[in-house]
C-alpha cells in the first residue's frame, strides 16, 4: 500500500505508466484499429507520411501501411519484452538464489557458468542462438531471455548472501523449516524489490535486442515487428528515412516508458535511496 502510494506520487512513474499504457492499448487494440493483415500490400510503395490520407504514416518499400505495422508491432514488441524478461528473471532468480543461499561449491559452479555467459557479448551469443535454432518469433524470444539472465542472477545472489545470515532466516532454520521454505518464503520476498526494478532494464534491453536482430534481418520476417520495419527501411535510409525513423521513435518511447516505470518502482521500493534525489 505504502509502496503504491509512493509510486503514484513520482512524476517519472506516472509519465512512464501513461506511455506504457498507451503502447499496451495500441497492442491490444491492434486488430480493431487495423483489422487487415498489416503485412499485406496496401498501396503504392514509399509514400511519405501525410501524402495520402489513407496512410497517415506512409508506406514502406513493399507498399505496406506503416501505421498498421506500428500498431501491430506494439503487440510483438511488448510480447517479446514481457516473455523474454520473464524467462531471464526466472532463470536468474533460480540460479542466483541457489548460488547465494548455499554458497561454497554450489556458488562456485553456478557463478562460473554465469561468468561464462557474461564474458560472451550478449548480442553475439544471441546471433549464434538464432543462427542455430532458426529465427521464428518463439526462438528469438527465448534466445533473448537466455542471454539476459546473468545480471539478474548476480543481483539475486548478492541479495541472498546478505539476507541468508539475518536473524529471521536463522530463526526459521531453528524452527526446523526446510531449505525450500527458507529460500521461497523467508529470503526471496525480501530480495525481490531490486530484482523487480532491474527487470524493467531487462525488458528495455530485450525490446532493443529484437530490433537489433531485425535490423540485421535475422528476426522473424513473418511478424510485423518494429525491428523488421527498421530493417526494411535500411535500404532507403538516405532518401525515405521515415521508414526507419517512425518505428525507431516507437521503440524509443516504449523504452523510455519502461525505464521511467523502473525508476518509479525503484523510488517506491527503496524509499531511502530516493529521498536523496
Amino acid at each position: 500500500m505504502r509502496a503504491l502510494k509512493a509510486y503514484l506520487r513520482s512524476p517519472a512513474a506516472l509519465i512512464g505508466s501513461v506511455i506504457l499504457l498507451a503502447v499496451l492499448v495500441m497492442g491490444l487494440g491492434a486488430a480493431w484499429f487495423y483489422p487487415n493483415d498489416p503485412l499485406g500490400l496496401a498501396g503504392r510503395p514509399l509514400q511519405w507520411p501525410g501524402q495520402n490520407p489513407r496512410f497517415p504514416l506512409g508506406t514502406d518499400p513493399s507498399g505496406r501501411d506503416i501505421a498498421a505495422q506500428i500498431v501491430h508491432g506494439a503487440r510483438i514488441s511488448l510480447l517479446i519484452g514481457f516473455v523474454a524478461t520473464s524467462i531471464a528473471v526466472v532463470i536468474g532468480i533460480a540460479i542466483g538464489s541457489l548460488s547465494g543461499f548455499y554458497g561454497g561449491v554450489v556458488d562456485t559452479v553456478l557463478m562460473r557458468v554465469t561468468e561464462a555467459f557474461q564474458t560472451l557479448p550478449n548480442f553475439l551469443l544471441l546471433l549464434v542462438l538464432v543462427a542455430v535454432f532458426g529465427s521464428t518469433i518463439h526462438t528469438v524470444t527465448i534466445a533473448i531471455g537466455i542471454v539476459s539472465w546473468p545480471p539478474v542472477a548476480r543481483l539475486t545472489r548478492a541479495e541472498f548472501m546478505t539476507l541468508r545470515t539475518r536473524d529471521f532466516v536463522q530463526a526459521s532454520r531453528v524452527q526446523g523449516l526446510g531449505d525450500a521454505h527458507l529460500i521461497l518464503r523467508e529470503v526471496l520476498p525480501n530480495a525481490l524489490p531490486p530484482v523487480i526494478v532491474y527487470a524493467s532494464v531487462v525488458m528495455a534491453v530485450a525490446i532493443l535486442l529484437e530490433s537489433a536482430l531485425a535490423f540485421l534481418q535475422l528476426s522473424d520476417p513473418n511478424v510485423p515487428s518494429w525491428g523488421n520495419l527498421i530493417g526494411l527501411g535500411r535500404n532507403v535510409l538516405r532518401s525515405e528515412w521515415y521508414v526507419s525513423a517512425i518505428p525507431g521513435l516507437a521503440i524509443l518511447l516504449t523504452i523510455l516508458g519502461v525505464s521511467l516505470v523502473g525508476q518509479g518502482l525503484n523510488d517506491a521500493l527503496n524509499p531511502r535511496l530516493a529521498s536523496g534525489r
Binding site: 536473524d167 529471521f168 530463526a171 526459521s172 524452527q175 520476498p189 525480501n190
Partner: peptide
C-alpha cells in the same frame, strides 16, 4: 532483525 518484515506475525509463529 529476527522477524521477517514481509510476513504476518502469526504465520511466523505457526510455521514451525
Amino acid at each position: 532483525a529476527s522477524l521477517n518484515p514481509r510476513r504476518r506475525a502469526g504465520a511466523q509463529v505457526a510455521q514451525g
